[in-house]
Design a protein around this nucleic acid. Structure first.
Lengths: 139, 139
DNA sequence: CTTAGCCCCGTAGTTAGGTACGGAGTCAAG
DNA sequence: CTTGACTCCGTACCTAACTACGGGGCTAAG
């Protein structure tokens, strides 16, 4: 049980979680990660729970949660708030679906413009530039 | 030909293009819109070309172009650079498709998590929270 | 015991795209 | 000719999530 993942310095924690040292401090200032007690003029030591917490944060971020939402999720991590947590995720999911729809519409528009530029037959002006001046309807 | 869209003040231009006056000034500072000459201690007047330019900027932005890309597009608007413009759009399209793929993957993950929380049968811990601690593979 | 390499802490800067503020000058209606 | 709305200009502030810097202290290896 002499695990090296216990008793690491902030630099070791940063390496283990693949984040910047400054990022860790930033998370501490934001209250996402707590600062271990500092032994009177010494340095702070971190353990595997801190690494796990950083993994949690990074994962949630990858899924599109903001740091303030990550705070909320961490507060809901007490074994009694699964419903609230999943509601938060459901809202995020809704939000993600909206973004997908918007991006699909953009994809349509862009690919049509690119195609028209490519198959430029009789056209005088650049179809892409003209479209931008004309504006796009739904968006 | 006494069109009101000629000779409008910056406030009128802002109203016509539905942007903030400060935004117009910001675009001028960024070189996206030029400042008409100011008649010695008087005020500047704008015309329909300026409105068109703002429409162009807003449309390009909606399609996901950054203001610096919008600058590029405006520079390519001389009737001789359709190819370059469409290449820029093609890169953006590629980029949009990448974003869609990522978001679809996120959608999958989130909806699975939400479902597992909802149909929580024998599980002890919240499936969502557990997943966040475990991390997600591809992303 | 020295010294290189960390750690601590506070503050400031970065990117993107604006938004806000404030004092001085100007324009147009009444 | 006054008054109220608007313009001009510079500078500062905003969000989000970091990233950088710098002076001073501590720690571990040789």
């Amino acid at each position: 049980m002499d695990d090296k993942s216990e008793r690491v310095t902030i630099g070791g924690l940063a390496k283990a979680a693949e984040v910047n040292v400054e990022t860790i401090r930033y998370y501490q200032r934001r209250g996402l990660l707590n600062e271990p007690v500092r032994p009177a003029g010494g340095i702070r030591y971190y353990g595997s729970a801190d690494i796990a917490r950083l993994v949690f944060i990074k994962t949630a971020q990858k899924l599109g949660f903001t740091l303030s939402e990550v705070s909320d999720l961490l507060r809901l991590d007490d074994g009694a708030h699964c419903v609230e947590a999943s509601e938060l995720a459901a809202r995020k999911l809704h939000n993600v679906r909206g973004k997908i729809d918007t991006l699909k519409r953009i994809e349509e528009l862009l690919s049509e413009m690119v195609t028209r530029c490519h198959t430029q037959q009789e056209t005088v002006a650049c179809p892409l530039i003209s479209s931008l001046y004309k504006g796009v309807g739904i968006l």
